[in-house]
Computed example of a mutant assay.
Amino acid sequence: MRPGGITTPGPTGLSRFRHPARIAIDDLLYLSTALSDSTAADALFALTPPAEVSAVLHGLGLRGITVRHTMQELVETPAERLDSADVHLAYVLAIEAGTAGRGHRIPQLDVTRANSGSARAFIELLQALWTPSPIDSGVAERVRTLMATNLLRHRLAPDFSSDASRWSSKTGTLLNLRHEVGVVEHADGQVFGVAVLTESRVPAVSQPGAEALMAQVARTLRDRLRHL
């Protein structure tokens, strides 16, 4: 991507660089995971295409997650084609243009064509990363470290972070979808995987109430499990 090409609010990391730069692969992993840097993620996809990522996951027995396209393809939604005054129309379309069979007029929201995964599938991935599994132990440790350094902590982190716990997670946002999956490790040895996938019916970009509700519900469910 040409340096200085992005000036609008939203994207983070490399897309906002103003000068050419050379970056190590391991640092691209940090940027893509901890900062949700889509440009860094696509630099990695150039080395390991989406279809290959899916094949690796499925080969590890993690068949509930399918990766079909790059981040650039993911974010090319109607919202990027509208002026800020009209962007709510893209959210209306996202909310209302789905089908009963989980298809959608917006390709990125059509589970038959887009990246897809269920809450159960993401919990299975977290379990494979936090417990012995076919995933290489060094790879799993590196992913856990990257998730622990995630800087986007406005959703579930406020309800799971404390001096007596460690919260590691990854967020995901697309139009009216707000997701986060993570693991909370308590000082007493208890460990819980959390996956919250939400679909808002409100055509607005900023929804702090929805973000807070995600954490409140997840915390309530975790509390019930912890005290069983």
Rank of each mutant, 00 (worst) to 15 (best):
A212E: 13
A94G: 05
V205K: 11
M147Y: 05
I135S: 03
L177W: 07
P11D: 08
V143T: 12
T220W: 09
A40V: 08
R22S: 14
P3Q: 00
A114Q: 02
G117C: 09
E185T: 15
P132R: 09
L62D: 08
R144W: 06
R18T: 15
R105T: 13
D136Q: 06
S168E: 05
W167Q: 02
P203G: 05
G138R: 13
L31P: 00
A119T: 12
A90L: 08
D223G: 08
T220G: 06
P132C: 05
G172L: 04
G61F: 08
T149D: 14
E52S: 12
V183F: 09
S169E: 01
H186W: 10
S162I: 04
S118R: 06
P20D: 12
A210F: 07
R113C: 01
D37F: 02
L228K: 10
V184P: 08
A41W: 02
I106S: 05
R178D: 14
S133Q: 08
L175E: 05
N150E: 02
L89G: 01
A204W: 01
S169W: 05
G98Q: 01
L177H: 14
A85N: 10
P158N: 11
P208S: 01
H186L: 15
L82Q: 08
N176F: 03
T149L: 13
I65W: 04
V184F: 08
G10D: 00
M71P: 00
D83M: 07
D188S: 07
A140C: 07
V56K: 12
T99L: 04
A55M: 04
A100H: 11
T220A: 15
L213D: 10
R18C: 03
H69S: 12
S116A: 15
A164L: 11
V196N: 02
P9G: 06
P11C: 09
L89R: 15
V111F: 11
F192E: 09
T7P: 00
A79R: 13
S118D: 03
G5W: 02
R22P: 00
E73P: 00
Q207V: 12
D86M: 10
R18M: 11
L89S: 04
P20Y: 10
D110M: 01
L221R: 12
G98P: 06
S206Y: 12
L151Q: 15
E96H: 12
A148Q: 14
G59L: 09
V205F: 14
H104F: 07
G182T: 08
L125N: 03
G182C: 09
H58N: 12
L28D: 00
A164R: 15
T198P: 11
R2S: 10
L74E: 13
L126G: 06
H88M: 07
I106F: 09
A41E: 10
A212N: 10
S36V: 00
P78W: 03
G13Q: 02
V191L: 09
L109S: 06
R63D: 15
T7F: 00
A24Q: 14
L152A: 12
T33L: 05
T149G: 07
H186N: 11
